[in-house]
Design a protein around this nucleic acid. Structure first.
Length: 135
DNA sequence: GCCAACGTTGGC
DNA sequence: GCCAACGTTGGC
């Protein structure tokens, strides 16, 4: 099983929106590195949902429920999307500031490449963020 | 194929 | 609102 971190601006699509819908297509990704990450996702993989711009924090866990397929919002046929479902919302959110200042997370792909909207997490990194969310 | 100009993302 | 980091575009 692999672990991921996926960003969304909460005024566009938040964790609560995902909970309300029950499941959603993670569409609109238009970056090659992010696409490669999505192509590597397998059903059952876990992903951390991160709120960019507003909040700037990890807010919960979701699961990949459908592997990469053509993005329904893409006219060109070049881009893919996965489908995700909520697993659980964090009791305490984990801020970017916290993640940046934690040596255990210094190698996180998102920390190294801050603009990447879909990034990989090592299992240890995923577990560490979850532990931080439990305070 | 290089590189300058420009656009976008996202943190602050 | 600013700016750094990237990605993309287009002239040469």
């Amino acid at each position: 099983m692999n672990y991921w971190l996926m960003k969304s601006e909460p005024d566009v699509f938040s964790y609560d929106d995902l909970v309300e819908k029950g499941r959603a297509e993670w569409d609109g990704v238009r970056n090659h590195s992010a696409k490669l990450n999505m192509m590597a996702m397998r059903k059952g993989d876990q992903a951390i949902f991160y709120h960019s711009n507003i909040g700037v924090e990890a807010v919960g866990i979701m699961e990949i429920v459908e592997e990469a397929a053509p993005d329904s919002t893409d006219e060109t046929g070049k881009w893919v999307a996965v489908h995700v479902a909520p697993v659980r919302k964090f009791v305490r959110t984990v801020s970017l500031k916290t993640m940046k200042s934690d040596p255990a997370l210094a190698d996180m792909q998102m920390i190294r490449q801050s603009r990447l909207s879909v990034s990989a997490l090592k299992r240890a990194e995923f577990d560490h963020i979850v532990a931080l969310s439990e305070g």
